[in-house]
Design a binder for these strands. Structure first.
Lengths: 199, 199
DNA sequence: ATATTATACGACACAAGTGTCGCTTTGTCA
DNA sequence: TGACAAAGCGACACTTGTGTCGTATAATAT
């Protein structure tokens, strides 16, 4: 029973996560990971044979973890507006600290034409994210908090808009209130008239 | 007066544009450009010393060209809704053909942490794009076609959402109607009630 | 036409990352 | 506590791209 091995792998994943969140996908090399973990080339290659393999393992764990968070809150009958605001402000804070955005690394990975498109981790992560949002929006419609035409299209606007901002923020030290602006527009798309006018 | 030189540079820029639009920024090497232009290493390096230098020259030309298009149409009193639809559907078509998106290369360049942040081509391109949209939106408000709170935040939602889609579409062969969905939501954000209900 | 300068060539040295392999060290079980 | 597998080491060969330089070729002005 190899305990040491799994511990090392865990450490590799943690350190690699930090590097990806800071530098993006392509910028991270096996050498970088060697340096941060303190492992030698041979030592690292024993556990993982590419940055992509490490990355995908992290992505999978990442989307699995977030999967049930929203669903649980819905079951607890927490108002949809509250859940929405939590989600949006989490996105917003990740945006402002561009040095710490693993989601941005995922974006970059997505946009990389050389990756193996057969792998379905990306699609899986997208589907999980989509079903979570659609569930939340439908819940909000059922409680009369939300008022929108098409939950799926709202989902797309939201996630894609946030990814765009993350990209820009990496270069431009974007105004901190842009995430807030976007949050307001997203709410305008979703909220019923009476709720909207509170703001 | 060196005619040959400028002709070669022009050719380099054209070929490089094709490569960037297809492969993104980082994926293109000086070697690739040598191969496509038929130039040797020394020949290419005489004109440009890096892919970044070529790229930035293209970006600058790119944003300058688009600058006055919208402004001209506003002066001709073409309805804001018409101009909006033209812009949005151009974005949408670029999204569907992910092999041909120079904008995506710009995005990727933006998100690259190793580039020289002193260069202001990116900021310039962003400012030009922003001022164009804000001008259009304010024009639409003045003609009572549009009805929105904050032109700048709408601008951000629009451009960022489209960039996000482009990224995903590069990997996922995204549904062709997602751009259309997003177009509708963007219109919902902008259009006055009476116009909106037409749809 | 020819001198002269701008273009273009391709071999070369260099840098950075990859992946491998024989060997050593360390864990783990009987 | 010894045996044996698992984990870790680091030198090596390889790949891919960069940037340079002496030389050759073509364009242009006089």
């Amino acid at each position: 029973m190899s305990l040491k091995g799994e511990k090392t792998k865990q450490d590799i994943r943690e350190k690699a996560y930090q590097l990806f969140a800071k530098k993006g996908f392509k910028e991270v090399t096996m050498k970088d990971i060697c340096e941060l973990t303190g492992l030698s080339r041979g030592g690292l290659y024993r556990h993982y044979e590419s940055t992509e393999q490490i990355f995908l393992e992290i992505v999978n764990a990442f989307s699995d973890r977030q999967k049930n968070e929203v669903f649980t809150k819905i079951k607890q009958h927490i108002p949809a507006t509250t859940i929405l605001e939590e989600l949006l402000s989490r996105y917003a804070s990740e945006m402002i600290d561009s040095e710490n955005s693993f989601s941005l690394a995922i974006c970059e990975y997505y946009s990389n034409p050389t990756i193996s498109k057969e792998d379905n981790s990306v699609k899986k992560q997208y589907e999980i994210s989509k079903s979570t949002w659609v569930e939340l929006i439908n819940y909000g419609i059922s409680t009369k908090e939300f008022n929108c035409v098409n939950p799926e299209s709202i989902f797309h606007v939201i996630i894609f808009a946030y990814q765009g901002v993350r990209m820009y923020s990496k270069l431009m030290k974007i105004d901190n209130d842009i995430p807030v602006q976007i949050m307001h527009e997203m709410k305008r798309l979703l909220l019923s008239e009476e709720v909207q006018h509170e703001n």
